[in-house]
Design a binder for these strands. Sequence first.
DNA 1: AAAATCCTTTGACAAAAGTCAAAAAGCGAA
DNA 2: TTCGCTTTTTGACTTTTGTCAAAGGATTTT
Lengths: 220, 220
Amino acid sequence: MPNNTRSTTNNTKSTTKLSYIRELSASITEPSTLDNIFDILNQFANISKDAKNELTDIILVREFTKGELILEQGKICKYLYFLKSGFVRGFYNQDGKEITSWFAFENDPVVSMYSFISQKSSFETIEVLEDSIFYTISYENLQMLFKKYSEFNLIGRLLIEKYYIELEERTMSFQYQSATERYKKILECQPQILQKASLGMIASYLGISQETLSRIRNKR
Amino acid sequence: MPNNTRSTTNNTKSTTKLSYIRELSASITEPSTLDNIFDILNQFANISKDAKNELTDIILVREFTKGELILEQGKICKYLYFLKSGFVRGFYNQDGKEITSWFAFENDPVVSMYSFISQKSSFETIEVLEDSIFYTISYENLQMLFKKYSEFNLIGRLLIEKYYIELEERTMSFQYQSATERYKKILECQPQILQKASLGMIASYLGISQETLSRIRNKR
DNA sequence: AAAATCCTTTGACAAAAGTCAAAAAGCGAA
DNA sequence: TTCGCTTTTTGACTTTTGTCAAAGGATTTT
């Protein structure tokens, strides 16, 4: 397999040009690997044929295995990832404790928003919790797309609007709900998190101690 | 003064076309009223002459007096405002209590993000806390600008990116800081809030009871 | 299988924050 | 200034959540 990665990390398991995958999957009946990234982006706006072709050349498919760190605290987030399959979290350190700021599932963007947007060093670390496959685009290439194809600004705007609203809801949850209420909300709206993440990670995500979460779960 | 408002509310004190203000202020030495809105937007990206002219025709200047509600819970937020001067908050109701979700100062955008973006009914109310002057643009006109001038997508994207990052910090503050720490952070980073808002509003903004904030302020 | 490690639960207690009620302070109108 | 209203403070008490320590479980390694 040709190694055409532009990654700064060296723990990449495999890196593949999307166009390569396209050829491979062209004859497969299942929704092809390729179409997924466009499916993700087409939720927001249509992409012209030209832009689609350019995207195909720019996006890389990369795999990471459980335990790998896609981004480490203090480094600059130079890539925007879309999770094709797997399970990932972002966390930051506070008084020696790891505090999970988000979990990502299939089709979610994976990025340290602050670091990627500002291109300053990241306060958060991105950790792969289950073997994962990503679509990857570098900051530079993305900026190029923004300049060259205005429609990407539209997609970018709509995408961040969506995540802004989700974040707003999470903030409100912290603002007026008790730990138990926040837990129940996750139980209802994001049960995948409870199925896949450890108690400690979920607790920090909820902003409470492990012990408290354990007690909530076992009804006091 | 010509009444050319397109507002759905009927408590508007005055509505003025920006072009009208431009003429008025053309001879004034002080930074003109007009330039401000472009100053705000130019922080993010340059605006072409054409776009600038069109903006000038679309943006209205509106004044609201203390106590007025720019947007009420349950209604759709049809306007994006930029606060030229004054003081505003957004709040929502929870178990009969008003919970302040944000405060806005000079140059801040004022909008119920969820309602404006989705054009669904708002869960928050926007209240004018001090007589305020706004630059106003309707949802339809903004969408028109997004379509016609791709540079506005860039501005829109950068603007929401900025507020996403701010919201992220606020969320993290709820996640791992105590009430006292959150209060001190505001004391340091947003002292204007403490100077202008009532204790009750600040308390709900911090996600704590009035009594607790009073005790924090008076060192237990 | 035993050892080591990690994750989760439980208990006892401490600290943080909420609730309710009443008093005090501030503020505006008459 | 006084009255009436709202906001803020204070006290007493309760509830929620955190901390520390130890005990169980589960899983992996040797």
